[in-house]
Write a protein that binds this DNA or RNA. Structure first.
Length: 422
RNA sequence: GGCCCCGUCGUCUAGUGGCCUAGGACUCUGGCUUCUCAAGCCAGCUACGAGGGUUCGAAUCCCUUCGGGGCUGCCA
C-alpha cells in the first residue's frame, strides 16, 4: 500500500486517538462487550457441538430448508445448562437475531433489505474465548467512530449482523456508519481475481515496471469514472474527483492491456530526472550497469530516446543494454540477417563512410550514412539502416539508430561495424 | 435449494424519459508518417441479455425471464 502511495492517517504505525489498532491487543474489549450482550439477553450461550450443528445443517439441506442455526440453545433451562456443563461442554456466545428485518442504505446500491428469518443467530465468541470477525469489526466501528465502511460486495450479506451488534451496543441508527459495497474485480476468465488467477501480487507489478500511479489510475477506473471522458488522472486529481456515489455497482474485469496503455502514458509523462530515478534500479538489478556516475550520466542521456518506446520500466534493460556491453550478441534473426551478402556489403560501405566523421553527433552520422547508403548504393532506408542497426546494437529492434550511435561513441561504433564483417 | 447483488461495444465505461441512427478509452483491423520498434494522426469493426408492459417517446420506469456473481461457518 505504501508503495502504491496509499497512506492511512490513523491506525497501526501512525497511531491515533482510538487505539490500540491491532485486533490482538483489543481482545479484552471484545470479551467485555460479548459479556454485556449476554447479560442483556441480546446474546446467549450455545452448547451445540460442531458435529451436532453439522448434522442438523445437513438435515435442513435435505428437507430443502435454508441451512443455518436453528436456535436450539436460545432458551435453555438452568437444568439443561448444568447438564451441558457437567458434560464438559464449552459454550460459544451466539447473538440473538430478533424477528423483523434490517434495512439500510448502501451508498452504491441503494436500499437493501434482509429479513431476519434468513439471518440465523451468529457466533460472537468461540468456545476458547476468542472473538469472531463479526463481533470485532462491529465493536471497532463503534469505538473507533468509523464513519464509512467500504468493502467488497461479498460482505454485503453480513451487514445485518454487523448492524445487530451496533444495536446491541446501544448505538442509535443515525450514528451507524455509512455502508458502501464495492464490486469485485474479476480476472479475464470471469472468476474473482485471486492468488490463483492472474498476477495479483503487487510485488510482481513493481518488478515488471508498472508505476504506482499508473496502477492506482487504472484501478480507480475499474468500477468508477470521473463522469467525463478523462482517463489519465493524477493521484492528486483522483483524491479531488473521487466520490463513492460514482462507483459502479457491477463487477469489472481486469485488463492488462489497458493497464499497460496507462503505464505507457505515465512513463511518457515523466520528466527525465524522475524517469532516471525510476529506471536506475532496474538497470542495476539486472547488472546492466553497476551504478557508476559515468554510467548513470550515459543512461540519462539515453532515456529521452527510449521514453516513448517502453510500456514497462523493465524494458529499459533490453533497450539500453547495447550501451554497456563490450561486444553485442546477435539474436537468432539478427544473426541471420547480418550474415547475408547484401547486409555485409552495406556494413562495409557504412564503415568506410563513417571513418572520416570526426564530429561524432547524430546529425553528422546520419548525413554520412545517407550519403553512402541511400544516395551511393541507392538503397531504401529500411534496407540501408537495418544492417547497421544490427551491427551496432545487436538487434533489428532498437532505439533510433543515429542517436544510439552518437551515445555509443565513435570508436565503439566503428569497431562493432568491423567485427560484423565476416 | 434459499437469500442478496449485478447485466450498455471483446474489455473498462458515459448515459438517470426526448440532445442516443448510443459517446469516450483500451484492444483489434486498415491507412498515413517513418531508419527498426514505438509514439503520433486518420478511418473502420463491434453494445443497451431476452420478452412483455407504462409513455407521444425508453438504454433510462415497472413486471417476467435468462445469465453471471456472492452469501448461506466456532472464515473474513
Amino acid at each position: 500500500m505504501k508503495w502504491l502511495g496509499l497512506n492511512w492517517d490513523e491506525g497501526p504505525e501512525v497511531g491515533g486517538p482510538y487505539g490500540p489498532y491491532l485486533q490482538s491487543q483489543r481482545l479484552e474489549v471484545y470479551t467485555d462487550w460479548a459479556n454485556t450482550f449476554l447479560k442483556n439477553g441480546d446474546a446467549y450461550n450455545c452448547y451445540c457441538s460442531t458435529e451436532e450443528l453439522e448434522r442438523r445443517r445437513e438435515a435442513q439441506r435435505e428437507a430443502n430448508q435454508a441451512p443455518g442455526y436453528d436456535g436450539k440453545c436460545r432458551s435453555l433451562t438452568s437444568a439443561e445448562i448444568s447438564k451441558y456443563e457437567s458434560e464438559g461442554r464449552k459454550p460459544v456466545i451466539r447473538m440473538r437475531m430478533p424477528d423483523g428485518e434490517t434495512r439500510f442504505t448502501d451508498l452504491i446500491r441503494g436500499e437493501v433489505v434482509f429479513e431476519h428469518k434468513f439471518v440465523p443467530d451468529f457466533v460472537l465468541m468461540r468456545a476458547d474465548g476468542s472473538p469472531l470477525y463479526t463481533l470485532a469489526v462491529a465493536v471497532d466501528d463503534v469505538l473507533m467512530k468509523v464513519t464509512h465502511v467500504l468493502r467488497g460486495e461479498d460482505l454485503l450479506s453480513s451487514t445485518p449482523r454487523q448492524i445487530r451488534v451496533y444495536q446491541a451496543m446501544g448505538v442509535a441508527s443515525s450514528d451507524f456508519p455509512a455502508f458502501a459495497h464495492l464490486p469485485f474485480v474479476m480476472g479475464t476468465d470471469n472468476a474473482k481475481l485471486s492468488k490463483r488467477n492472474g498476477e495479483v501480487s503487487i510485488a510482481w507489478y513493481r518488478e515488471e515496471g508498472f508505476l504506482p500511479e499508473a496502477i492506482c489510475n487504472y484501478l480507480a477506473l475499474l468500477g468508477w469514472s470521473p463522469g467525463d471522458d478523462r482517463e489519465n488522472i493524477t493521484m492528486e486529481e483522483l483524491v479531488q474527483l473521487f466520490t463513492i456515489e460514482r462507483v459502479n455497482s457491477s463487477p469489472a474485469r481486469f485488463d492488462m492491456k489497458k493497464l499497460e496503455a496507462i503505464n505507457g502514458d505515465k512513463i511518457r509523462a515523466l520528466d527525465i530526472e524522475d524517469f532516471l530515478k525510476r529506471a536506475l534500479p532496474f538497470l542495476i538489478e539486472a547488472k546492466v550497469i553497476s551504478g557508476l556516475a559515468e554510467e548513470i550520466a550515459l543512461v540519462k542521456k539515453a532515456l529521452p530516446i527510449i521514453q516513448e518506446r517502453i510500456i514497462r520500466l523493465k524494458e529499459v534493460i533490453p533497450m539500453l543494454g547495447f550501451l554497456f556491453v563490450e561486444q553485442v550478441e546477435f539474436d537468432q534473426e539478427s544473426a541471420t540477417r547480418i550474415g547475408e551478402a547484401d547486409a555485409q556489403k552495406v556494413v562495409g560501405v557504412a564503415l568506410d563512410s563513417l571513418e572520416p566523421v570526426t564530429d561524432w553527433n547524430h546529425t553528422q552520422i546520419e548525413s554520412a550514412l545517407r550519403g553512402s547508403l541511400i544516395d551511393g548504393l541507392g538503397l531504401k532506408p529500411r534496407n540501408a539502416f537495418g544492417p547497421v542497426r544490427i551491427a551496432v546494437t545487436g538487434s533489428h529492434i532498437s532505439p533510433p539508430l543515429f542517436e544510439s550511435m552518437e551515445l555509443l561513441g565513435r570508436e565503439r561504433c566503428l569497431s562493432r561495424l568491423k567485427s560484423a564483417i565476416r
